[in-house]
Every structure is written in structure tokens, then in C-alpha cells.
Design a protein around this nucleic acid. Structure first.
Length: 425
RNA sequence: CGGGGCGUAGCGCAGUUGGUAGCGCGCAUCGUUCGGGACGAUGAGGCCGCAGGUUCAAGUCCUGUCGCCCCGACCA
């Protein structure tokens, strides 16, 4: 992608209302644009990162047998009335609107009420179980107070997976696999998530939240630095320094952002919709259910909160919008300028040819300093510089965003070098 | 929903006791610069959030309203 043609731009200043770190950096670097409180447009760079996060999520969901579907965001009142959620939580959370004929409609804020009747249509026998379906979709929640950039929006991206089982044991077994899959997602996204016991609502003793420690978090958790056991303060009687119940180590207290939540729902939703199956004896049995949520947009915000410095974002490899920022440093010497440009163009297409299309800063009228500042702000993991200096030294300059060392790499060796860097993961 | 702050050019801001709007950045053109956000010159860009009111006259005073941010309460 030629930077000169990229829709969206970096800015030296940032809107005064973008106060959280992720909002400030993502707006300043041209990843997102705020439409209203808690609602953002994803610009090309932002959408690419968001899509890469979603891709990681999809791969891990598929790995545990999840099958992707897409349910509507526009839903009718009836199923919400069936489960009682039309009135509780009601309009405090739901966006409601009227359709033709004064019909009550709800914008999807979660999808148990939609997926459960859906699954009922296809479940007859124990042979149809277990089944797990998921979707990646924008959710709408009428937050009393949207805040902190992508961390708490009124429209936000959500992956919600629902699993259906013949009994509690089967749910438990799947639940454990989901727990692991979730940790894989966060690890691949560069987040160090802690599985945290949290309120289970009416359905189970606990749910599990995935919490990432950061000063900008909204939750307080107590966690064991040794064995990683953790509880959310909302259910916890612990205090900082208390002995971990699992290993005895002193527990820590920290602010954290919740990047996922998994629940054993039991028959909370399958009962009201009458979802049953025939067991081996032909007897009808209730279907047991679990649900599992990750917010890719919130994950994106959390990544920026954590992986950034005073100059900009520092993307983890897996979720960077492009693998490489290729910087062409302009030259005053006409002949040399042509040579530099040819080298950079060739390198850009060479990288693209092996699936590593760079963000290529081809701007002619911008000085090196500004290009470097933009590269730091945008935060791609690898920066390659084609300049009189680098060519004089026999190649292009290689630098990681996360470090300060530079080295000269021969031009022909660059695609392999970048490729190796990304294959390590 | 309580408390607080703020709405003036794309962004950041100034605007005095009321007299019809300015600075910086950015943008356009030209020249000089050229590896860490350069400099000079010229220029374009405004429903002063919106609606009422007071006044000869409102960015400025009054009332209302909408929006944004922060702290609470609540929540993936």
C-alpha cells in the first residue's frame, strides 16, 4: 500500500476529547475516527488490524470445533419476552426501536435468544450433539457511559460462540477446551490474559473472565503472580497480600481490562425455548448450553493500551495492519533519487510477491524525520529504510519498532528476512 | 442517572468593560532546506454547537437545548 494513497492520515495533534491512550493513539495514527460517544469508524489501517484480530479468533474457534454463522443484528421482541430479558435488563441495556406496524425490535446486544431457537430447529437426537456455533458481529449496548476509546463502546465488535451439549459433563469438557482456546487468542494477540473467576450470574457459581492487567482497566482483580489464580473483586473477599488459595503465594491487586468472558449457562435458555433431544432410550432430555464472548474491538483497544510508548503504537506481529513499513528517504540528487525510488519500488513488490505487502511510504515531498515519526506512530513491527545512507552501506536499514538497533540488510535478503521474522511468531 | 469540565477554521487554542474574529499546526503555490515532525513568502479556509431572549449592536450577557470528555452508579 502506498502511503501517499492511503485513506486516513496521521496528525501531530489529537482531538482533546480523545483522552484514553488507545483512543488518542488510534485517532492520531489514523486508525479510527469517532462518530459519536462510544462509536467509531475503522479506517483502512484500523480495519486491517481489527480483521487480523478477528482472524486469530476465528482460527481458535474453528480449532475447538466452532462453526461460523451470522445471525441478524435486527431482532424481534418475542424471543426476548420468552426469556424475560425484554424487561430485565430491558432498555437499560437494549437499543429498542419500532418497525412497521409498530412492531418492537431490538438491536442484538447478545444472541442467546436468537441462537437457541435456531439450534432447536436442527437438534433432534443425542447424535446431533454437541454442537458449537459462533459469529463475529457488531453488538449494540446502550451503555450508560461509553468511554475509553475502543474499550467501552455502544457499538462494538463481538465474537460470540454458543455450545450445546447433552449433559453437564460434556459442557464441562468443552468449557475447558474453550478456556484454552481463549488463552491462545490472547497470547497470539500479544496480551497476557489472566483467567479470572467472576460472577456467574444466575446460572452458575462462577463465570470466567479474561483480564489483562493495565492501569486503564475498569476492573480490580486479585491474582496470584505464581500460579495465575485470580478473582474479580466483585466476588472476591481477598485483599492484596492474602495467601493464594491454590499455592499460598501472596496475591496481588491490580486494575485490569476484561477482554473475554465465558459462561456455563446450563438450561437457562434452552428451558424457556424447550430445546430437548432424544437420548439413546428415546427419552427427551434438556440441552445444556454454554456461551463464550470475546470483543475484538476491545482487544484492539487493550493491545494499544499495553503495546505503545511515547512515540506511538507498537503492534504485536499477529495483529499489525501491515508487516512492514518501508520508508523511502528522498534525496536532493536527481539521479540518486531515481535510484532510491526504483530500489524501494522493487523491494515493495518483492515483499508483496511473498505475501508481505508493506506499507510503503513513497511520499516525495516529506522529509525523513517526519516519515520516521509517522512510522513510529503507526507502529508496524518492522521498519525498512531505503536511503542514500543505506544504499551506500550496501542495502536497506532494518529496525524493529520495539527496539532501537538498526542494521543493514542486503536488498535481496530482505523478503526472506521479513518472512523469517514473521514465521517465528 | 448524579457531580464536574468543555463546544470559536480539519486539529490544538486565544478572543479584555458587548462594537460583526485571530494565533499555531495542518492544507495550496513558490523558493531555500533534506536521517527524527525545517525556514521564508503568498493564499484558501468560519452558521463562534443550535434555538430563543436582552441590546442600536452578542463569540461575549440571560434562558433553553444538543453534543463531547472526565469522576461516580452500571456494564463485554
Amino acid at each position: 500500500m502506498r502511503y501517499s494513497r492511503l485513506f486516513g492520515r496521521t496528525s501531530k495533534t489529537v482531538p482533546s476529547d480523545a483522552d484514553s491512550r488507545n483512543a488518542r493513539l488510534l485517532v492520531q495514527a489514523g486508525y479510527v475516527d469517532q462518530l459519536m460517544s462510544g462509536v467509531y469508524t475503522y479506517l483502512p489501517l484500523g480495519l486491517r488490524s481489527l480483521n487480523r484480530i478477528k482472524q486469530v479468533v476465528r482460527e481458535e474457534m474453528e480449532a475447538i470445533g466452532g462453526q461460523e454463522i451470522l445471525m441478524p443484528a435486527l431482532t424481534p421482541r418475542e424471543p426476548w419476552a420468552t426469556t424475560g430479558r425484554w424487561n430485565d435488563p430491558g432498555p437499560e441495556v437494549m437499543f429498542r426501536l419500532k418497525g412497521r406496524g409498530d412492531k418492537d425490535l431490538v438491536l442484538g446486544w447478545t444472541h442467546e435468544e436468537i441462537v437457541t431457537p435456531l439450534v432447536k430447529r436442527f437438534i433432534r437426537s443425542y447424535k446431533d450433539l454437541p454442537v458449537a456455533v459462533y459469529q463475529v458481529q457488531d453488538k449494540f449496548r446502550n451503555e450508560p457511559r461509553a468511554k475509553s476509546g475502543l474499550l467501552r463502546g455502544r457499538e462494538f465488535s463481538m465474537k460470540d460462540l454458543y455450545s450445546f451439549h447433552r449433559n453437564q459433563e460434556d459442557l464441562d469438557e468443552f468449557y475447558e477446551r474453550a478456556k484454552t482456546a481463549y488463552l491462545n487468542v490472547y497470547r497470539r494477540c500479544g496480551l497476557d490474559a489472566i483467567v479470572t473467576e467472576a460472577s456467574g450470574g444466575a446460572f452458575s457459581e462462577y463465570s470466567h473472565e479474561y483480564q489483562v492487567l493495565t492501569e486503564n482497566g475498569e476492573d480490580i482483580i486479585y491474582y496470584c503472580p505464581k500460579c495465575q489464580y485470580a478473582q474479580n473483586r466483585e466476588i472476591s473477599g481477598y485483599r492484596a497480600g492474602d495467601a493464594c488459595p491454590k499455592c499460598g503465594e501472596a496475591m496481588g491487586e491490580g486494575k485490569a481490562i476484561e477482554v473475554g468472558n465465558i459462561f456455563r449457562l446450563g438450561t437457562r435458555f434452552t428451558d424457556p425455548f424447550g430445546v430437548t433431544y432424544s437420548d439413546e432410550t428415546g427419552k427427551q432430555q434438556p440441552v445444556v448450553m454454554g456461551c463464550y464472548g470475546i470483543g475484538p474491538s476491545r482487544v484492539m483497544g487493550a493491545i494499544v493500551e499495553i503495546h505503545s510508548d511515547d512515540r506511538g503504537i507498537i503492534w504485536p506481529k499477529q495483529v499489525a495492519p501491515y508487516p512492514v513499513q518501508l520508508v523511502l528517504v528522498p534525496s536532493k540528487d536527481g539521479e540518486e533519487a531515481v535510484r532510491l525510488r526504483e530500489t524501494a519500488e522493487k523491494l515493495a513488490s518483492g515483499l508483496a510477491a511473498v505475501g508481505l505487502e508493506p506499507l510503503y511510504d513513497d511520499r516525495e515531498d516529506v522529509r525523513a524525520g517526519e516519515k520516521f515519526a509517522d512510522a513510529d506512530l503507526i507502529g508496524l513491527p518492522v521498519r525498512l529504510v531505503v536511503s542514500p545512507k543505506s544504499l551506500g552501506a550496501g542495502g536497506v536499514e532494518w529496525k524493529l519498532r520495539s527496539g532501537s538497533d538498526t542494521e543493514i540488510v542486503p536488498i535481496d535478503a530482505v523478503p526472506d528476512r521479513v518472512s523469517d521474522f514473521y514465521n517465528l511468531t
